[in-house]
Design a protein around this nucleic acid. Structure first.
Length: 569
DNA sequence: GCCGTTTTCGGCCCGACTGTTTTCAGTCG
């Protein structure tokens, strides 16, 4: 079992214990252990062997034993027992906003509710609202929550979808008749959520024959919906994957069509038709002449068009336009937005800094939570002084990366930042984010941001809408008003690269740029493993058409500091 | 369940809002 699966299982154990009414600190211990496991950048088997797992904070004998069992055998006695004791529907209900374990337990005991459909029925027929401390509004909120959950369950977060596809692609690539496998669809276009998992395989035998052979593999549960070149495969309990098979001479045409979007393809097809081509099937034809397209560039070229990077294939308007210079990971010189063990991260300043150095960054901005974020171990003034001393000491030792002193300050309800100015003045830069009071009206929320922007110490606005993909809508806020104010004030706005956020949305990046806003890529890393988030931030910037000149992290440390200081003078 | 020590138990993450009550339990970040 890999690290992610182990972390998921630990979280699930925590949920079961919680639902059983266990001590909350015991529950929290399992949740914390899941976060610790996520923070490991080496496979857990390695961490078990070299003793580093045992040494890790939050991993005691009981949890260690379960992790070892999971890694070695893929299952856990404790987990299996819990799974039999607690109905799985109750765990699903924990994802409904407004429903916590206490209420779920009450529903279970009082009404015998064990599944989402049963919950929905009780919310509709009035039984739920009649319970003590429930009511009509709660029933309403739960129905909305169920609807949201249903919708979300059809979708995958980008990083989950990518991991699924990569694993299956690797397995398929080992097949003797498959020479290459490419992720396609939304995963390749780097959308923030993904509906369909699509792979393109290049094979040297007819698709039907290949599908038959794949169907005989023990890891493949099901091959369905077969037409002449596509089938839906199910590997074990994983979500279904659409596999499209092509000979090498049509790879370009097939990959373009498998990648989409529908709007891009529609425009591309009509462009082809106007020029006497036909792109409807699995290949490109010019009249009755077959046009080989061994890669995508050949296809676009045949149609007299520049190749379009997959991230930009959305509205169709990108066709025929020159491709703008797009951001690449290698352009980034600075790493921004990370949490250390001073607040809710799992690694030290030095561990994060050295990992960033090894990943090729020149500088890193440390941004732990400010004091109002008590739930996340927000920093008291004493903590700040200790961290600043630690950073000074680290920088004095010349480790080959510069550490900057930052903070992720809460934006309080009235728009004030979370420390007095004399403390704010001592940071090299500031990220400021909203972490509470989400349900102000749009006008009040917007005013809150505008007031924060007035502070000369603010450098970057963090995760501007507060959305959590597939679990929480962003709060109501006038983004364009914020763009305008930030652009004028010289305040940057973050693309939060946490794959659960990806906030700003790529669809609004063009408007931010037009308003003169600098964009920063904020990893929101809570461990060394979180450094990998940056890849998602880069993808979102590219989808929004942004290049290195638009991105604050592409500056040298000196230029970044000058950007922050310019506001204070 | 884990941690840390003035070690083998006591403390661990807390403050504010929401919908329900009519004083507060439950949820959230």
């Amino acid at each position: 079992m890999d690290n992610t699966a182990v972390a998921d299982t630990l979280d699930r154990i925590a949920a079961y214990l919680d639902l059983k009414g266990e001590n909350t600190f015991r529950v929290r211990a399992w949740r914390n252990a899941a976060r610790t496991v996520e923070g490991f950048t080496v496979p857990l088997a390695t961490a078990i062997a070299d003793g580093s797992l045992e040494q890790a904070k939050g991993i005691g004998p009981a949890i260690l034993q379960v992790i070892v069992e999971l890694v070695e055998t893929g299952r856990s006695e404790m987990f299996e027992t819990l799974r039999e004791e607690v109905p799985s529907g109750l765990v699903e209900m924990m994802a409904i906003s407004g429903l916590g374990v206490a209420k779920i337990r009450q529903l279970h005991t009082a009404l015998g509710i064990e599944t989402l459909p049963e919950l929905e029925e009780a919310a509709r027929d009035g039984r739920l609202a009649a319970l003590p401390r429930f009511g009509a509004r709660t029933a309403e909120a739960i129905l909305k929550g169920i609807a949201f959950l249903r919708q979300s369950s059809q979708l995958h977060l980008a990083h989950h979808a990518r991991d699924e596809l990569n694993e299956i692609a690797a397995a398929l690539a080992a097949h003797p008749h498959i020479s290459a496998v490419y992720p396609a669809g939304e995963v390749r276009r780097r959308t923030e959520v993904v509906r369909d998992l699509t792979l393109v395989a290049v094979a040297d035998i007819p698709p039907a024959e290949l599908f038959r052979m794949l169907g005989d593999l023990p890891s493949v549960n099901e091959v369905t919906g077969t037409d002449e070149r596509r089938a839906t495969l199910r590997f074990g309990s994983r979500p279904p994957v659409q596999l499209i098979v092509t000979p090498p001479q049509n790879l370009g045409a097939v990959l373009v069509q498998a990648t989409g979007s529908a709007e891009h393809l529609e425009r591309l097809t009509s462009h082809a038709t106007e020029r006497g081509f036909n792109l409807a099937g699995a290949a490109l034809w010019q009249g009755s002449r077959f046009v080989p397209t061994p890669d995508e560039a050949t296809l676009y070229q045949a149609l007299g068009l520049p190749w379009v990077p997959p991230e930009l294939r959305e509205t169709g308007e990108e066709i025929g336009r020159p491709v703008p210079p797009l951001l690449e990971r290698s352009h980034l010189r600075g790493f921004l937005h990370c949490h250390t063990s001073y607040s809710d991260g799992t690694n030290t300043v030095a561990q994060l800094a050295l990992a960033c150095r090894d990943a090729g960054y020149e500088w890193i901005g440390i941004t732990d939570h400010s004091r109002a974020a008590a739930y996340a171990g927000g920093m008291q003034p004493d903590d700040l002084r200790r961290q600043w001393d630690e950073i000074d000491e680290f920088n004095a030792a010349n480790h080959g990366i510069l550490v900057l002193k930052g903070i992720e300050s809460d934006i309080l309800a009235d728009g004030a930042l979370d420390y007095p100015d004399d403390i704010l003045a001592q940071f090299d830069f500031l990220i400021a984010s909203v972490h509470s009071r989400f349900n102000l009206g749009e006008a009040e929320m917007t005013a809150r941001f505008l007031r924060a922007i007035e502070s000369p110490y603010l450098t970057i606005i963090g995760h501007p809408t507060g959305r959590l993909l597939l679990s929480r809508e962003g709060y109501a806020v006038d983004l364009d008003a914020i763009f305008e104010a930030a652009g004028k004030a010289g305040v940057a706005i973050e693309i939060n690269a946490d794959p659960y956020r990806l906030d700003l949305d790529w669809r609004v990046l063009g408007r931010a740029r037009e308003a003169g806003v600098m964009i920063s890529i904020g990893a929101d890393a809570h461990s060394v493993a979180g450094l990998a988030n940056v890849d998602f931030g880069v993808a979102i910037a590219r989808k929004g058409g942004l290049g290195p000149d638009d991105i604050l992290n592409c500056r040298s440390a000196g230029d970044f500091l000058a950007f922050a200081r310019a506001r204070r003078e």
